[in-house]
Each structure stands twice: as C-alpha cells, then as structure tokens.
Design a protein around this nucleic acid. Structure first.
Length: 295
DNA sequence: GACCAGGTCAGAC
DNA sequence: GTCTGACATGGT
C-alpha cells in the first residue's frame, strides 16, 4: 500500500494537536511523527513541511476515518479570528498553540479515558490506556515498528471485573469504569454499540442534556462529562474546567481571587458562546506549558 | 519524601 | 444547598 499525502492545512500542527492533552492513545516516534490508533485502526503519520503524510493509507481510509478524526475540514482561521474578536486575552495562548485542532474521537474510548484521567497526570493516563488496549483490544499490526492495539470495544470489556481493572493501576476509578461499561452496554436508547449508534443518540441532544445523561454514570462529574461532550460528541461549546483551567481563568479574569467552578463556567459560556471548547483547549495547553517553563 | 495530578463521591454541617 | 476529606497511584 502506498502513502497518502495531503497538503497541510496551514492552521494545523500534528504535534500540538496530539500533545495538547485531548487524547492519550498515541506514541511519538520523532519530531512531528507519530503512531496512533482511533476507531479500531492504526496509523503512522508525519508532518513534513507543508505536507501531512499518512503512511500505508488509502484515499478511501483517509476520507472515511482520518479526515474527520483530525477535523481537517473545519475553518480554524475563522474560529481563531472570532475568538480574538471577542477576547483579546486569548491572544498569547492562541499564538503559542496556533496549530491545535480538536479531534473527533470515538465515544467509548473518550468516556473511559477521561474517567481514568481524574486526579492523574497525563503520562500515567496514557500508560493505562495503552495497557488496557494491549490487554483487551484487537491487535492491529506493526506501525513504524510499533505493535498497536485498538482500544477495546464495550463488548470486549463486558465481563471484565473491578479487580481486572485494578490490575491496570486504575485504583479507585475501577468501580467507575465498571459502571461506565455496564451502562453503555445497557443503553436503553441505543440500537447497538457502534460509535454511530452512540453518536446518533447524542447528536440530537444539547450539550446540557448530554452532560446530564453522561453524569448518570458513577464517577462521571461535570468535568469528565464536559470532556466527552467536547472531544467525542462534537459539542464545541463545552467548556471543561479542570485544575489548570480554573487556575488560568482565575488569574486572567477574576483578579486572582478564588472562584467557584459554576461562576467560571457561566462566565465562559457568556464570553465564548459556541466556541468555548476551542478557547478552553488553547488555554489549557498554554497554561500547562507556562507552568513547565517556569520550573 | 513531600506535593500534586485534565475529579468525584459520600457524609457532615 | 455548600464544604471537606478520602480515594490509588505515579510524576516531578
């Protein structure tokens, strides 16, 4: 199979998009070169100059999976322009993290990944997601010499126990993950367990109703639900607030004074409206980098 | 060896 | 309704 090459979208950066904290199932091979999995497929991809190289990929697979996964059809120039028009404060963050696209990830993987994410650092989340895939997911073959495994489907996790999950070092989250698997397997509104099934249900709901539905799962609070809603369900007005976002929002807009999550949330909703998710991601990535360079 | 991490829950006021 | 401590485990 040959490689499929797309002329790079001028607003897109592979490394920033993958490393910004929205996804966990990838491995860096070299600068701007990665292997990753999504939707039960593996991918070896590299950004080189103004080109994106999809190794051993057909045009059909690109059109079917990756074009959508990387959100390549969206006009990020106008997203950023509109954000800057409403809020000059975002200028530094957007300038630093200009190449971030919000991926369209699959529902189940995103749900479980962000349940795992609570009170954990990103490197450890990645390890657990990787281990869970290796143990329960389909083997996809070698990509750039790396053995890749798909994130398991709900079916593949059907009979997994809490103890099994604890072996993956999920700690107190094991019970939460178990509940998420059970609830997803028994979704009364879904016709099946494919990503399309989940999407067709959630796409008819407002972000608010999505959050309400997701928070029925034990261990899924407002933050995790907001991440699933933003990163998998296409609700780009979702504004997840974690410790980093809370910190930078308080510093930028609340005069450094301790502020409740709900107040930050309504402030963001008012300010960013339908673009909350983008603003959040630029801010999150920027805030973390800032903290790193200070040390 | 503290202290913190893309939080959430249950129990105490 | 709001506040607080507990929760497993690994990074820094």
């Amino acid at each position: 199979m040959s490689n499929y090459i797309v002329k790079k979208e001028t607003e897109f950066d592979l490394e920033q998009t993958l490393e910004c904290g929205q996804c966990f199932h990838f491995l860096k091979i070299a600068d701007e070169e990665y292997v990753l999995t999504a939707y039960g497929r593996g991918l070896h991809i590299k950004q080189e100059g103004d080109e994106l190289i999809f190794y051993n990929t057909t045009k059909k697979d690109f059109d079917l999976i990756w074009r959508h996964y990387f959100d390549l059809d969206r006009d990020y120039k106008s997203v950023k322009k509109r954000l800057l028009e409403t809020d000059k404060e975002l200028e530094e963050a957007i300038k630093a993290k200009w190449g971030v696209y919000i991926l369209n990830q699959s529902f189940f993987e995103t749900l479980i990944s962000f349940i795992i994410s609570q009170n954990k650092q990103i490197p450890h989340i990645k390890k657990i997601v990787w281990a869970m895939s290796e143990k329960y997911g389909d083997y996809l073959g070698e990509y750039a010499g790396v053995k890749l495994y798909a994130f398991p489907t709900p079916e593949q996790l059907r009979s997994v126990t809490e103890d099994d999950l604890k072996e993956l070092k999920t700690g107190f989250r094991a019970a939460y993950i178990k509940d998420a698997i059970d609830k997803v397997l028994n979704l009364e509104y879904s016709n099946g367990l494919s990503n399309e099934d989940f999407m067709s249900f959630f796409s008819n709901l407002s972000n608010k109703d999505c959050l309400k539905e997701l928070m029925k799962i034990k261990g899924v609070g407002l933050k995790v639900a907001s991440c699933v809603s933003l990163f998998a369900l296409g609700k780009r007005d979702s504004f997840p607030i974690d410790v980093w976002i809370k910190r930078i929002m308080i510093a930028k807009y609340f005069d450094g004074k301790e502020t409740k999550i709900e107040d930050i949330e309504s402030f963001a909703k008012e300010k960013y409206k339908d673009l909350g998710g983008y603003a959040q991601q630029y801010l999150f990535y920027y805030a973390r980098d800032l903290a790193k360079t200070k040390k």
